[in-house]
């Protein structure tokens, strides 16, 4: 048993020494977005889940310096599906080995961005693919990497709106004469 334990320790040490240095791998990935059903003419929030790989951070949407590049999502505009506001999560205030006295506002690990989508009433019911990019700029504890664009795509299902309630026809004041 003791021997097995020692062997495990040695193997773990070897594995740790041999770990790959994550240099040019994509730092951010997007989880497949669930299909969101949206009614014609109504706005709905579509949640998009992203993950920053371990050991890296990216600036939040509101970094604390004008020189830092904020994480920003841009969805391509369509004529009859309106992309409204984008809700970004608050970042974490963190300090890093390269700037222990300075707090940076960053995203690490998993974070979610909500996009407001509003199809016009004229949009035909069905599934629509929306595409865009998440711009981010990543750093690790010792270096920073040039800004990157992560392709983003998600599908929405447009459902038919319930028929509008009938309004009473406007009455002419002359009809009462």
């Amino acid at each position: 048993m003791k021997r097995l334990f020692l062997c495990s320790l040695v193997l773990l040490a070897a594995a740790a020494l041999g770990q790959d240095a994550p240099t040019m791998k994509p730092v951010v990935s997007m989880a497949p977005a669930p299909l969101t059903t949206i009614t014609q003419g109504k706005a709905s929030q579509v949640p998009l889940a992203f993950r920053v790989i371990r050991g890296y951070h990216i600036n939040s949407n509101q970094p604390k310096s004008e020189f830092l590049i904020p994480t920003a999502l841009k969805i391509g505009a369509t004529t009859d599906i309106i992309i409204g506001g984008t809700d970004y999560p608050e970042g974490h205030d963190m300090s890093f080995a390269f700037a222990p006295d300075e707090k940076l506002n960053v995203y690490t690990g998993d974070f979610q961005v909500d996009v407001s989508v509003r199809p016009l009433r004229s949009v035909l019911p069905g599934k629509y693919m929306l595409r865009g990019n998440l711009k981010y700029q990543a750093c690790d504890n010792a270096a920073c990497y040039p800004p990157k664009q992560l392709p983003v795509s998600f599908e929405v299902k447009i459902a038919k709106a319930a028929p509008a309630p009938r309004k009473n026809p406007a009455q002419s004041p002359h009809s009462h004469k």
Binding site: G18, Q19, A21
Partner: peptide, 17 residues
């Protein structure tokens, strides 16, 4: 395994920084 680990670590260190 130790040899492979150490060799890989050296290679990474050289490539990375």
């Amino acid at each position: 395994m130790l040899f492979a680990g150490i060799h890989s670590a050296r290679k990474n260190r050289a490539a990375r920084s």
